[in-house]
Design a protein around this nucleic acid. Structure first.
Length: 719
DNA sequence: AGCACGCCGACT
DNA sequence: GTCGGCGTGCTC
């Protein structure tokens, strides 16, 4: 053993190891600028780079930094950057047993870097174990995770939990297949329908990094178009990654890729494969055996080597929001990836989010759109029935459905399947006066009134039951809930066309496809089956419910769901007709009629900019017990531009309902403040919130102790 | 979160 | 003198 590596280093010759801890204070005072790696007696250290910088795998914010450990000689070869390690961690008793210092428990971590010296002046503990020599955490993945953690005021360890799947020894032992040579560049195919479609593919195929927001034409070609974009990136010798909102869309792109490139060129990363298979797939990607990845949101971190393209389909779908801390959105993660890896970026949807419009407006991405004549050729005819029409239409009131809608369904059923889009079950709309449409509110707390399963009218905030409601505006005693009406309407439609089969698709039972024969297909938004040859008609019944939501995204969301359903309908030239039951003067309804989701998003963006709403400004939500929120806001050193809105009381959750992350426990009164910063100050806001949170945690106001707060960047359902 | 260190009052 | 209270701060 060399004295340099032994406990005798640093001028503490002859001091028994137990006493080193005692003199640590004086060592620190002496401010040894760069301590030689010292460890406790006995351990011979690696000759080269004897220090391992380790990220300790604890999602706690105040531990969100690296810790240095000594590398014992026997672990030297395996202790490479990126491997999983186990280390002793914690301010436990510094017992010395069998010549080794022990303290705290063994916890997992990642080896981030090997160094010649540590800048930590205390004695280093040794790595306890290298879990496996597989370098799972590449520099790129670490950089991405760091960027995501910073963006979302979260800890690196939390993000890595999302990015690196749990180890499976059997999968690790299996050899991954040999990589295939790049395929030839694909034909442009239906990309030719877009003004810059072919150019986009050519740029990818020749090694470029084009960035586009793609407004997809209605119809089924989108999955093949995505496959061609992947093929183009592969043709350049680089990799590609596509993130999709659900298993059905993954299956479609999977099929498109297989038919375009054959088997073996792409991996499918979804949650439903078992842990061993999933990890094996992930390893094959990391090892470079497979260069293209498709999958749902967990795939956004897939360790594709030498990325040429990241693509996302339908970013407005809320399943792109990760449910686990710090709840990153796939679009934002892929944006960070594209910036970091300098690769191509493709954000595609039939609809258009405000965020997508912003990417174009800022000049970061270019629009990839079809000309108006292409849109007219691909979209169905859209007609509206508003409340006014409904009131004037005597027959409609009796039949509970406007004449126009009946006609569309009847005519459609002569040509093929007809889609009826109804609101999700369990989705509770706001109740309103049936006469004057004034929202029905709780007389105690002004919360929204809802009907429970039993049919009783209750307040959604305070839970009080409302026995004798009458409208404070017009005195009417009649309430309206269009959701109930829509379901009943769908049932009545079925009875009205007894010769036609009725098929339903919803949360519990999602149909993938339906045949091209006449049928009524009743579906909730997002569960619409694809009809062979397209639907002859669609009836969109939940407009009132969707637009009535008190959410910033209500309009955008309603339009997106309508567009998604209407995109499954045949073009107008083939007789495709869509009837939407919603007020025709409303902006999203007009955008649907004109088939102009991009225009809608651009107008929304302008409005958000004017009002200081996200995504133009960045927002964060701070929620928790009122005292904790107030204390957090008092102590946080927010950037000077930050504006604090609230705090306001959050609705009290009724018992028995599933509790979302960041929501108060049932019966507890929480408050929520929103913090807003102007464009460009998002990073500063996140950093300030993270620092404040870390300081509070270190002081013992952890989330478990009841005084903790939840911090969420880009909160959903605001205002 | 744990857990040791440290600086104050009652004890053999 | 010294045992032990919990308030503070660290974990390589």
């Amino acid at each position: 053993m060399s004295s340099e590596n032994g406990q005798a280093g640093g001028g503490a010759e002859g001091v028994p190891p137990e006493q080193l801890a005692l003199i640590r204070e004086s060592v620190r005072k002496a401010k040894t600028p760069r301590a030689k790696p010292r460890t406790w007696r006995g351990a011979a250290l690696a000759k080269e780079l004897p220090v391992a910088r380790v990220l300790v795998d604890k999602g706690v914010l105040h531990l969100d930094r690296y810790f240095d450990y000594a590398v014992p000689e026997e672990l030297d070869a395996e202790a490479q950057p990126g491997v999983r390690v186990r280390v002793r961690f914690g301010a436990g008793r510094h017992r010395v047993r069998e010549g080794r210092r022990e303290g705290g428990g063994l916890i997992d971590g990642f080896l981030v870097e090997r160094l010649a010296e540590s800048d930590y002046s205390g004695p280093l503990a040794a790595l306890a174990q290298v879990v496996s020599p597989e370098p799972v955490l590449s520099e790129e993945l670490l950089g991405l995770a760091r960027a995501v953690a910073d963006r979302y005021a979260g800890s690196l360890a939390d993000v890595l939990q999302l990015a690196v799947p749990p180890r499976n020894a059997r999968a690790e032992q299996r050899a991954s297949p040999e990589p295939l040579p790049p395929p030839p560049a694909p034909e442009a195919g239906s990309w030719q329908r877009y003004e810059r479609g072919a150019a986009f593919l050519e740029s990818l195929a020749s090694g470029g990094a084009p960035r586009a927001v793609w407004n997809a034409l209605p119809g089924p070609q989108w999955s093949e178009e995505l496959a061609r974009a992947v093929a183009a990136a592969l043709a350049s010798g680089r990799g590609a990654l596509v993130v999709l909102p659900d298993g059905r869309s993954v299956a479609r792109v999977d099929a498109a890729l297989t038919s375009l490139l054959g088997e073996g060129r792409h991996a499918v990363l979804t949650a439903d494969a078992g842990p061993e298979k999933r990890y094996a797939q992930w390893l094959a990607v990391r090892r470079g055996s497979v260069r293209a990845v498709i999958g749902t949101r967990a795939a956004m971190f897939a360790p594709v080597q030498d990325l040429g393209l990241v693509a996302l389909w339908d970013d407005g779908d809320d399943s792109h929001s990760e449910q686990h801390a710090p709840q990153p959105h796939a679009r934002e993660v892929l944006l960070l990836r594209a910036a970091q890896d300098k690769c191509g970026f493709l954000l595609g949807s039939w609809a258009c989010t405000v965020e997508a419009a912003q990417l174009v407006e800022s000049g970061w991405a270019r629009p990839l759109v079809a000309g108006r004549e292409q849109v007219r050729g691909a979209a169905p005819l859209v007609r509206t029935v508003g409340d006014g029409d409904l009131a004037r239409d005597e027959a409609a009131r009796a039949a509970r459905l406007p004449t126009l809608a009946w006609q569309a369904v009847r005519d459609g059923l002569r040509q093929g399947p007809v889609l009826v889009q109804v609101p999700r079950r369990g989705y509770v709309p706001r109740m309103a006066c049936a006469v004057c449409r004034a929202p029905a509110r709780c007389r105690h707390c002004s919360g929204p009134l809802e009907t429970r399963d039993g049919g009783a009218l209750c307040c959604g905030w305070c839970g009080r039951e409302e026995g004798g409601w009458h409208c404070p505006e017009c005195g009417s005693f009649r309430l309206r809930a269009s959701v109930v009406g829509a379901r009943r309407t769908a049932e009545e439609l079925g009875r009205a066309f007894p010769a036609v089969p009725v098929r339903t698709s919803g949360r519990e039972h999602v149909l993938d496809t339906v045949p091209g024969a006449p049928a009524l297909v009743v579906s909730t938004p997002g569960a619409e089956p694809v009809a062979e040859g397209g639907y002859a008609a669609a009836l969109l019944l939940d407009g009132w419910a969707m637009l009535g939501r008190p959410d910033l995204r209500a309009g955008e969301d309603a339009l997106r769901r309508w567009i998604a359903a209407a995109s499954l309908v045949r073009p107008q030239s083939a007789g495709g007709t869509v009837v939407v039951v919603a007020e025709p003067t409303l902006r999203p309804v007009q955008a649907l009629v004109r088939w102009d989701p991009v225009g809608h998003a651009v107008r929304e963006l302008a409005e958000r900019a004017e009002l200081g709403f996200p995504p133009v400004s960045r927002m964060a939500a701070v929620s928790g017990p009122g005292e904790a929120v107030a204390d957090f806001l008092r102590t946080a050193e927010l950037p000077p531009e930050a504006e604090v809105l609230g705090p306001v009381p959050l609705p009290v959750a009724a018992a028995g309902r599933p509790r979302r992350a960041g929501a108060p426990p049932p019966g507890e009164q929480w408050e929520r403040a929103l913090v807003r910063v102007p464009p460009g100050k998002g990073a500063a806001l996140a950093a300030a919130l993270k620092a404040a949170q870390a300081a509070r945690m270190a002081r013992g106001s952890g989330s478990g102790s009841g005084t903790g707060v939840w911090v969420r960047i880009d909160p959903a359902d605001i205002g």
